[in-house]
Design a binder for these strands. Structure first.
Length: 423
DNA sequence: ATTTAGCGAATTACCACACGTCACA
DNA sequence: CGTGTGACGTGTGGTAATTCGCTAA
C-alpha cells in the first residue's frame, strides 16, 4: 500500500516538469495561486511556523519596492508568465504557509485563505541584490554591508533570468565555489555556491537529510521546464521539490516557488524563538569572509542553525503537523496541482459556436424562449407605402435594436439580429 | 509614518443548453 | 458484443460585479 502510494506520488511529482508548459499559459494567476495554496490544501501549516529568516538573492539593489510589496514577476516577459504571480510575494507566501495553528481554519476546507499578514509573519530578511547581467558587473551581493534589518526594509525585485542563456546543469557541471560566475543567472550562481557549501558542511548535510528546522532552496538548473535541471526545496522537514538525484519533485517546483516572490537562496528556521542565524553568521554570509563553513573559498555560505532537531522518526512535528501529515498534504497539493487547467483552450469548437450564437442578457446566457419573445416583431406593418412612414418604422426598429443591445450583449446580439435581417 | 479615498486593471461569477460520457437495458 | 436510451455533468462567452494594486491626499 505504501509502495503504491509512494509510486503514485512519484508519478505525480514526475509530471511537474511537463506541467509547466501548460502553466505558462495560465490565464488566471490569482486562481492559480489559490489553487496552489488553498485548493491544494497546502495553506496553513505545511511549512514551519513563521520564525523564518528568508534570505533573498535579488538583482536590483536600487529597487524601490519594499520587501513586503507584491512584485511583478516577469512583467516584461509574458511568454514566461508564471502561475505564481507577483501578488504572491514572500510575505503572502509566508502567510499562506505559516499561519499559526491558532489561526488555522479547517484544514479540510478548500477555501482556506490564511491572513495576508500577521505579527507572526515577520518581514523577510534579504541580501542586497546582485547587479544586472548587462555589462561587466561582477559585484558580489554579499559584499554589501547591509544588515539584515536594513535589507528587510530595502527594495528588491525578482530576477528575470533569460532561460536561453542558462546552460544546462550537465553542461555546467557541479557548482563550485572556485568556478567563475556563470554568464547566466546570478541567483543560480549564488544558490549553487551556497549549496556547495552546504554539501561540504556536515551540519547542512544532516539538516538536508532530516533536520526539521532548516529549509533550503537549491536552484541550480535555471528555469523550469527545461531538461537537465535540478534543484530542491527543503523546508521544515518536508521535501517540497527535488534534491538532485533524490527522485523528488522536479525543478519546476523550485522555479514556481522562486517565482512566487523572486526568492532564491536558503532559509533557515530555528525551532527556538530566535533568529535562524546569529549576527556573526549573517556577517559571514554577507561578507563572504573566511569561514570554516566556506571551505576557505571566501565565498559566502550559510551556517546551520544550532540545535536543529534531527527528524529521524515520522512522529516529529514541525508546527502542527507531523512529517507524514505534511507529506500527505504535499501529496494532495501536487495531485491537485497537476489536475489544474491553466490554458484556455477550446475543447469543443461546437460549444464555442453555440455559445457565440447563444442569446445573452447582460452577458449571461438567456433562454431561447425569452429571447425569442423579445425579438419577435410585435406588430410591424410593412404595408405602408409612404416613405416617411417607412423611415419612422426604421427609426423605431433602430430604437428597439438599441434597447435590445442593452438587454443583450452587443457581440452576441450581432449573431442573431442584424439591421439588414430585420428590415 | 499611517490612513483613507479613488482610480484603473485584473479577476471572477453568472447564465442556458447542446453535447459528451456513462450506465443500463 | 453491439446498439439504443436516459441521466447527468461539462464546456462555452460576454458582461457585471468584485477584488486587487497602486497612488495621491
Amino acid at each position: 500500500m505504501e509502495e503504491q502510494e509512494a509510486s503514485m506520488q512519484q508519478d505525480v511529482i514526475n509530471t511537474t516538469s511537463e506541467q509547466l508548459s501548460v502553466e505558462e499559459g495560465i490565464s488566471s494567476p490569482i486562481a492559480a495561486q489559490i489553487l496552489d495554496f488553498c485548493d491544494g490544501d497546502v495553506g496553513g501549516d505545511l511549512f514551519p511556523p513563521p520564525d523564518i529568516a528568508l534570505l533573498r538573492f535579488t538583482d536590483d539593489v536600487n529597487a524601490e519596492a519594499s520587501a513586503t510589496t507584491p512584485l511583478p514577476c516577469y512583467a516584461d516577459d509574458d511568454a514566461s508568465f508564471s502561475p505564481f504571480p507577483s501578488p504572491l510575494d514572500s510575505a503572502t507566501l509566508s502567510a499562506l504557509l505559516d499561519a499559526p495553528s491558532a489561526q488555522l481554519p479547517d484544514p479540510e476546507a478548500d477555501d482556506v485563505l490564511p491572513a495576508a499578514s500577521s505579527p507572526l509573519n515577520p518581514p523577510l530578511a534579504m541580501f542586497p541584490a546582485p547587479p544586472p547581467y548587462a555589462g561587466e558587473h561582477h559585484l558580489d551581493p554579499f559584499d554589501d554591508q547591509m544588515s539584515m534589518g536594513d535589507a528587510a526594509t530595502s527594495g528588491y525585485r525578482p530576477y528575470s533570468p533569460d532561460p536561453a542563456a542558462v546552460p544546462t546543469a550537465a553542461a555546467r557541471g557541479p557548482p563550485s565555489c572556485h568556478q567563475q560566475r556563470p554568464t547566466a543567472s546570478e541567483e543560480e550562481y549564488y544558490a549553487a555556491a551556497a549549496v556547495t557549501a552546504m554539501q561540504q558542511t556536515p551540519g547542512f548535510a544532516g539538516i538536508l537529510e532530516g533536520g526539521g528546522g532548516v529549509g533550503a532552496l537549491y536552484y541550480r538548473g535555471g528555469m523550469a521546464g527545461e531538461e537537465g535541471r535540478d534543484g530542491f526545496f527543503y523546508a521544515g522537514g518536508m521535501m517540497a521539490a527535488a534534491a538532485p538525484g533524490a527522485g523528488f519533485a522536479g525543478p519546476t517546483d523550485v522555479a514556481d516557488y522562486h517565482r512566487m516572490g523572486g526568492v532564491l537562496g536558503l532559509y533557515a528556521q530555528d525551532t527556538a524563538p530566535k533568529p535562524a542565524y546569529s549576527t556573526v553568521d549573517l556577517q559571514v554570509i554577507r561578507g563572504g569572509s573566511q569561514h570554516p563553513m566556506t571551505g576557505g573559498c571566501g565565498k559566502p555560505t550559510l551556517l546551520p542553525a544550532p540545535d536543529i532537531p534531527v527528524m529521524d522518526d515520522t512522529t516529529f512535528k514541525v508546527g502542527r503537523l507531523s512529517v507524514e501529515e505534511r507529506k500527505e498534504k504535499i501529496h494532495r497539493y501536487m495531485k491537485k496541482r497537476n489536475e489544474r487547467n491553466f490554458s484556455k483552450k477550446i475543447k469543443y469548437a461546437c460549444r464555442k459556436t453555440l455559445a457565440d450564437s447563444r442569446p445573452r442578457v447582460r452577458g449571461r446566457f438567456a433562454r431561447n424562449d425569452d429571447f425569442g419573445e423579445i425579438t419577435k416583431p410585435s406588430s410591424s406593418n410593412h404595408e405602408f407605402d409612404d416613405e416617411e412612414v417607412v423611415v419612422k418604422e426604421e427609426e423605431d426598429i433602430l430604437d428597439s435594436l438599441d434597447i435590445l443591445a442593452h438587454i443583450s450583449g452587443v457581440n452576441s446580439f450581432k449573431y442573431n439580429f442584424t439591421l439588414e435581417s430585420w428590415i
